[in-house]
Structure formats: structure tokens, C-alpha cells
Design a protein around this nucleic acid. Structure first.
Length: 570
RNA sequence: AGCGGGGUAGGCCAGCCUGGUAGGCCGCGGGGCUCAUAACCCCGAGGUCCCCGGUUCAAAUCCGGGCCCCGCUACCA
């Protein structure tokens, strides 16, 4: 039995996450966490809302509310949505919690004392009207290369060139449009150069990192790590604890990643066993696994390990960061401004969570960007989840109901084909297990689907509906083994589609707790089945059309509401 | 521009690391079965494995060059 910290990237709660955010971080982490628990490991699965930073501060100001109020209302919405998605967090907290703020401040002070921080003065743009220092993206102006009027301070969206905000012709504040001035300010930097060798070793010697995380990180290391500013001149954030840094905050990225530790502390504190957090975060035997989209790789593979080392290296070094590529929606990137995509509140208005979870894991972007399209989604729901899996379950159970007295049949008198079937299906189950272990969730699910296909072939070949007329014991042998395959299916699917899997477990009349090991145990003859009904159903194209219309209506209602948290559909 | 990923049948994707008759699913054509949610099973048609060159007895797979697509580039998070 092992100890695992599972962390999923902390959603920035300026908006509700979309399906792409979900499969990259929270949903993948949930599937893995559920798998580990089924295996009997001790798991603490944490995440939380990332609340601080300029975008939320600015939007709150524009709406005339306190950033704290804005963030906390959004946090509550997002937390509720994750609950409805059956995300099995042990704790979903946020970065404005007392525990986190205190922890982050102490942590950075220690790094400061250890000599990994230096200060530097620089000139940054400041909007005198909004009284705010402007991050590069909050300055717009004319692109010096192509003349595009609305180029941002970091990059021109028209010609794609990288820019420095000082290059912009006629720069203006993206919020109010007034002319920014340049102010000199002092910032506190993390000296990554001092940590570079150790980080390189950490990345190179890590056998678990996915290829994209490893390549990307090594690429950055090859160029050389540059010091990064930890502090910011905004108000909405955690006050920087460094001497002389009064009035400054810690850049959100640097504190949010520490949430993986502070949330575990908070979790055990709530249980009244606070000291137990050290068994996870101060234990070289423990494993720490993060789930992030590819945009998040540097912060989890380089920055957080660097912080842990700079702090003194007494913390558990993260085992791996399971990073995904991107999910596209109908061929294009999800985009809030273009309203392109599906957001996780909307999704739940359209289909039950199991359906989404199954589809998203089935196409999880593990090797490359993958495209969510409604036609693919319908195919997976209707042909794979419903026909191959759901219908197989139904075939077996309703046959036992109608021809075998509704109780689990005895092993009977098996023919070689029956033993072969169990061997094949067990091999597939083990394959799924190996893939889960390697966090290849998509492959695990595909192996499980293959089990159902194997089962369908088996029934067609053995035709127990004929056997039952001439040789009851032979028919029992078949159904006994088909039933066994359902045990494996239920257990294997539980991480992906928990509602369906637990419903299946009840229909099967299983009294034991649903655990991974149960799959390897032969069925107990004589147990009575529960009520048998279809696990899943098909979604017609007409239904999807209706649903999408409904979605449009919901969106126009949302658009009419003033505050973002009022726009979330619950 | 630099870095990373990708280009395989009408669609989606596996195989590439560890060269050796090109695989899966959907769709399409034909057949079978009737336990099941008009589901399931079998057979078949369909491919210049982006292009050019090289290594090799043999290349989708290795090497070089080119074209195209996507992402990242660290002060949005």
C-alpha cells in the first residue's frame, strides 16, 4: 500500500472551466485517484480555486465589487460544479484560505533566508487612472511591425510577433484606454540559475514524466533558466513576506502551486489529525502526482520542484506531472471570447456526468491535440459506451434473470473455450491495470471496451440460448464466466464512469465492496441479482439538436446577467 | 524566429523507440444470430503510410532536406 498526493491544476476562477480544462487536469486526476483508492492506496486528492492576480482584480473593479467577493462567489460555483461532476476531491479549497496564505508566506521567507532570492529594479507600465501596474497583456497599442491597432504588450495577435510593451506605438491601458506611464519598481526574484543543475537532474533522471513534459522542460533547461520575479505590484494577492516588500504581493503562479502542500495540511487539520500531512509531503516513500494541461508544464516540472529545493529539500519531490495536450472543440481551440466550446456547467445541462467522463477519457489528448466533435461524441456514447459495453452487460444479466433463475450460476462444466475466454478477458483487465498504473487513462479505457467486445464475441460463439435447451451445465459455465467478466468491467470502469459502475455492481447483486481485487475473484454462485435495467441509453442526433438549442437559450439568459457568478448554470 | 508535437483508407486514431507481408473503431456492401437497448457476431471492399533523397537484403518505422498543421516561448493564468 502506498501513499499518494494527487493534485490537479488549480483552476483560475475568473471563469468557469471548460471541457478542455477539465480533461487535462481535474477529471484525469479524479480517474487516477479513484483507481488508486480501488487498489487500496492511501490517497489525498486536492486542488482548489486560484483566486488572486490581476485579471480577477481588474474584472472585479470593473464590476464594482471586491475581488475577494468575486473570487469567493466563483469559487463556490466551481466547487459545486466539480461535486456534480463526481470529482472525488478530498479537499477542494482556494488560495485565499488562511492556511494557504500563512503557509506560502512562511515558505517564501525560508527561501529568502536560504539565499535564493535577490532584488532588481525595473521600469514597468502603470496606469495612473486605474492606479494599477499593467502586466504586458494589459497594454495595447499599435504593432511596430505590422501596424495592427490592437497588439498586446506581449505579442501581436495579427502578425504573431513577440513584443516588449515598450515597443508599442501609442500604448494605452487595456482597461480604460488612457496612456500609461513608466514607473520604477523593485521586485524580488527567484534565482533559478542556482537551482538549474538540480532541476536538470530531477528532470533527466525522472522515469515517470510523460514525453511532452520531459521534452518541453529539457528544452527550457537547455536554453538556461532565467531568474523570475516572484513579486507583483498588485493588491489582490498574498502579501509578499520579504523585508522591504511591503505593499507587494506574491505572483499567483508562485503561490498557487504551493497549494498542493497547504491543501493537504488543511485536509488533515479538518480531520483533526494535522500532523499526518507530513506522511505525504515529508516522506520520500510517498508519491506526488500532478495533472495539468501542457501550458502548465513549466510551473509543475520546473518551478515547483525549484521552490521545494530552494526551501531546503525536505519536501517530497513530485513523482511526475501527467500532462496532456489540448482538447479542441469542433476543430478549433476553446475560446471564451468567441464562445467556442462547452463549459462544465453547460455540459451538465446536456448529458449526465458519466457520459461526459466516458467520452472525455476515451479521447483524452495524451499524445497530441484531439478534437471533440459532436459526431465523435455521439459515436462514442452510442456505439461504444451504450452498444458495446451497456448492451453486453444487459445481455448477460437479463439472460441470467430470465433463464437461470436470477441468481449467479455455478461454474458448471466448462469447455476449453470457456477457460480461454476468462484467460483473454483477464489479460485485457491486466492490460487496463497496467495502463492505469502508467496514467495512460485513454488506453486503460480502450482495453476495458475491448473486454466488452470480447464478451460479445464469446456470447455469440457459445450461444448459451441454445445450450440452455440441451445442456444446462454448459450454459451455466458460459454465464458464470460472462458474469465474471462483468465484475472486471464494473471494477475497471469505476474510475471513469462511477455512477454506471456502482449501479452495475448493485444490479449484479454483489455484496462485497467494489474494490480492484474483487475483479480477480470468481463469482459466488447463488447470489441473487438486483433489478436489471439498461445502464446507458443512446442519444439521438435530434436530441443533440434540441440540447444545443437549449444551450443557446441558456447562453442568452446568461449574457443578460451582470455578474459572472450569476451566469453559471447550476 | 527558437523549442515541442503532429501529417497512416471517406472520418477518427494505433503502429514508429526495439526496421521484416499495413492494424483498430466508425461509415459502406454482403451474410449470421435472436440472450440483448433494431443491439451483437462473421466476411468483404477501401490506403502513393505528406513530398524528395539516403542507409539497408528489407523503411510507415532509422538518417538528411523540404512542405503543411497545432501548441509553447517563461509579466494572462
Amino acid at each position: 500500500m502506498g501513499r499518494f498526493v494527487i493534485g490537479s491544476a488549480w483552476p483560475y476562477v475568473q471563469t468557469v472551466p471548460h471541457l478542455g480544462n477539465l480533461i487535462g487536469s481535474v477529471l484525469s486526476a479524479d480517474v487516477y485517484a479513484r483507481y488508486l483508492r480501488l487498489r487500496g492506496h492511501k490517497v489525498v486528492f486536492v486542488s482548489g480555486s486560484d483566486m488572486h492576480g490581476t485579471p480577477i482584480e481588474v474584472e472585479a473593479i470593473q464590476l464594482g465589487v471586491d475581488p475577494a467577493e468575486y473570487a469567493s462567489k466563483m469559487h463556490q460555483m466551481v466547487a459545486e460544479l466539480f461535486r456534480r461532476w463526481n470529482i472525488s476531491f478530498d479537499l477542494y479549497t482556494h488560495t485565499h484560505s488562511e492556511t494557504h496564505i500563512k503557509f506560502a508566506q512562511d515558505f517564501f521567507l525560508k527561501i529568502y533566508e536560504n539565499g535564493y532570492i535577490f532584488t532588481k529594479e525595473e521600469e514597468v507600465p502603470y496606469c495612473p487612472r486605474d492606479k494599477i501596474y499593467l502586466p504586458d497583456r494589459f497594454i495595447i497599442g499599435k504593432c511596430p511591425y505590422c501596424g495592427y491597432e490592437r497588439a498586446r504588450g506581449d505579442q501581436c495577435e495579427n502578425c504573431g510577433r513577440l513584443l516588449d510593451p515598450k515597443q508599442l506605438v501609442e500604448p494605452r491601458c487595456a482597461i480604460c484606454g488612457s496612456k500609461p506611464e513608466w514607473r520604477t519598481t523593485r521586485h524580488w526574484y527567484l534565482d533559478l540559475r542556482k537551482l538549474e543543475d538540480r532541476i536538470r537532474r530531477y528532470v533527466e533522471e525522472n522515469p515517470h514524466l510523460p514525453q511532452n513534459a520531459k521534452e518541453m522542460s529539457l528544452g527550457m533547461l537547455k536554453e538556461g533558466l532565467r531568474p523570475r520575479a516572484i513579486t507583483r505590484d498588485n493588491r489582490w494577492g498574498i502579501p509578499a513576506p520579504f523585508p522591504g516588500a511591503e505593499g507587494k504581493t506574491i505572483y499567483v503562479w508562485f503561490e498557487a502551486v504551493l497549494g498542493y502542500i497547504s491543501a493537504v495540511i488543511e485536509h488533515f487539520r479538518r480531520l483533526g489529525r494535522e500532523e499526518e500531512w507530513a506522511q505525504f509531503w515529508k516522506n520520500p516513500e510517498a508519491r506526488v502526482v500532478f495533472f495539468v494541461g501542457k501550458d502548465n508544464i513549466p510551473f509543475h516540472v520546473i518551478i515547483l520542484p525549484a521552490l521545494l529545493l530552494a526551501n531546503g529539500g525536505s519536501y517530497t519531490m513530485p513523482t511526475t506531472t501527467a500532462s496532456t495536450e489540448y482538447l479542441l472543440y469542433e476543430g478549433d481551440k476553446f475560446s471564451k471570447s468567441r464562445r467556442w466550446g462547452i463549459w462544465i456547467d453547460e455540459a451538465l445541462q446536456l448529458l449526465p456526468p458519466d457520459y461526459w467522463r466516458f467520452v472525455l477519457v476515451y479521447i483524452r489528448p495524451e499524445n497530441r491535440d484531439t478534437n471533440f466533435t459532436w459526431s465523435v461524441a455521439l459515436e462514442i456514447i452510442n456505439k461504444v459506451m451504450n452498444d458495446d459495453v451497456g448492451n453486453y452487460v444487459n445481455r448477460v444479466l437479463s439472460f441470467i434473470k430470465s433463464r437461470m433463475g436470477g441468481v449467479v450460476p455455478p461454474p458448471g462444466r466448462p469447455a476449453p473455450e470457456d477457460e480461454n475466454f476468462i484467460a483473454r478477458v483477464t489479460e485485457l483487465f491486466k492490460k487496463a491495470e497496467r495502463h492505469y498504473d502508467a496514467i495512460e487513462l485513454k488506453d486503460a479505457l480502450h482495453a476495458l471496451v475491448e473486454m466488452a467486445r470480447e464478451g460479445n464475441r464469446y456470447l455469440n460463439t457459445r450461444a448459451p440460448w441454445d445450450l440452455v435447451k440441451t445442456d444446462v451445465e454448459a450454459a451455466q459455465a458460459v454465464l458464470h464466466r460472462a458474469y465474471w467478466s462483468l465484475k472486471m468491467l464494473a471494477v475497471g470502469l469505476a474510475p471513469v464512469a462511477p455512477d454506471g459502475a456502482y449501479q452495475l455492481w448493485r444490479m449484479m447483486g454483489e455484496s462485497a465492496e467494489l474494490r480492484w481485487d474483487e475483479a480477480y475473484k470468481p463469482p459466488k454462485p447463488g447470489a441473487a441479482l438486483g433489478e436489471v435495467r439498461p445502464l446507458f441509453r443512446k442519444i439521438t442526433e435530434a436530441e443533440v439538436k434540441t440540447l444545443l438549442q437549449k444551450l443557446e437559450e441558456l447562453r442568452s439568459q446568461k449574457a443578460a446577467r451582470k455578474f459572472p457568478w450569476e451566469q453559471v448554470i447550476l
